[in-house]
């Protein structure tokens, strides 16, 4: 297993390099002049040229890319063109917020969404099932920014349970995180509930569930011990996908609540064509998604023993290759 994880991590390196190259190319070849953004419209020719030279923009594209990557491998993500601060510093300021939001919202989603999905499946077509399905439909059709604004208006402005503004420095308190977490969670909840419900329904009808019932197992034990783990694979996939996406920032939530996370940073960097900042963020996001995917795959193998032998097959195949 360890060998498999290491191999997957090694494969991740060329993938991230590939992504960085593509993004670097897009940034370099889109029209518009990043230098003009920095020095301002009124700057004279000499200042402009000096800045251009300083940023290395007079070098050919490939040279620029290779220089950039050389620094990255040395551990230097460069300086932001706009703020003149270190990219690593900017990321260090934003990543914790993005991580907190991702973990709390995914955690809360699992805590609430899984039980709803399970109960809906077990009590299919009951009032509870119909109600929760209707609620999920409402949730999916609601624009996220609107929900965020409404929550803020109601709970922060009207009844003042929670603060409306997020502090510019630091990570805030628990109270600051509740509304953003709920908003962010709402966007993913419906998919989770529906996936849990439909896979549970499928599993509940399978033969081995009937075998468990024929043993005299209680309904609770049939659900938790036999059905749930079998229904987990699609849920794990979905949660992994959502978590990976959230690493790129929950843009709408961040904007509505004024949380300066990775999403915010990335959008600002792209609009101002701040190449080092965009590249730094992209490297972070791509690595995160890669690692989350790996984590999901490892979890799969842990959940489903059938995949363990698949993995053994891979091992046999690769060892055969070595013999040849």
């Amino acid at each position: 297993m360890l060998r498999y994880i290491v191999r997957r991590l090694l494969i991740l390196i060329p993938i991230v390099i590939g992504i960085s190259f593509i993004v670097f190319a897009i940034l370099s070849f889109t029209p518009g002049d990043p230098v003009m953004n920095i020095v301002g419209n009124g700057a004279d020719e000499a200042t402009y040229e000096a800045k251009r030279e300083e940023l290395g923009l007079n070098d050919p594209f490939l040279v620029r890319y290779i220089n950039y990557m050389k620094n990255v491998f040395k551990g230097d993500l460069g300086k932001s063109w706009n703020y003149d601060t270190k990219v690593s510093g900017e990321l260090g300021r934003t990543i914790p917020k993005t991580l907190i939001l991702a973990i709390t919202s995914v955690g809360l989603m699992l805590l609430i969404g899984m039980p709803i999905g399970i109960i809906s499946a077990v009590k299919q077509y009951s009032i509870w099932d119909n109600l929760s399905m209707a609620a999920m439909l409402v949730l999916t059709s609601m624009p996220l920014f609107w929900l965020g604004l409404m929550l803020m208006l109601q709970f922060a402005v009207n009844i003042k349970w929670f603060p409306a503004a997020f502090p510019t420095e630091g990570l805030g308190t628990i109270k600051h995180w509740i509304l953003p977490t709920v908003t962010c969670m709402a966007s993913m909840m419906a998919a989770l509930v529906r996936t849990t419900r439909s896979t549970m329904l499928e599993v509940i009808r399978s033969d081995y569930i009937r075998t468990a019932q024929a043993k005299g197992a209680t309904e609770r034990s049939v659900i938790t011990r036999h059905a749930l783990r079998n229904a987990l694979l699609p849920v794990v996939t979905l949660v992994g996908l959502n978590f990976g996406l959230l690493m790129g920032g929950a843009l709408v939530t961040e904007k509505v609540f004024g949380i300066y996370g990775v999403g915010y940073l990335l959008v600002n960097a792209v609009t101002s064509r701040d190449v080092p900042l965009v590249m730094g963020s992209i490297l972070f996001v791509a690595t995160c998604i890669g690692v989350v995917n790996l984590f999901v795959d490892v979890l799969y193998v842990y959940i489903d023993p059938r995949l363990r032998s698949e993995y053994v097959k891979i091992k046999i195949k690769s060892s055969k290759k070595l013999q040849i």
Partner: peptide, 21 residues
């Protein structure tokens, strides 16, 4: 009663066992 006094063996062995236990 189930499993203790009366047991049932189902038709399809391929699907009657829980794959993850």
């Amino acid at each position: 009663i189930r499993g203790d006094m009366v047991s049932m063996i189902f038709q399809d062995p391929m699907t009657s066992l829980n794959p993850i236990l």
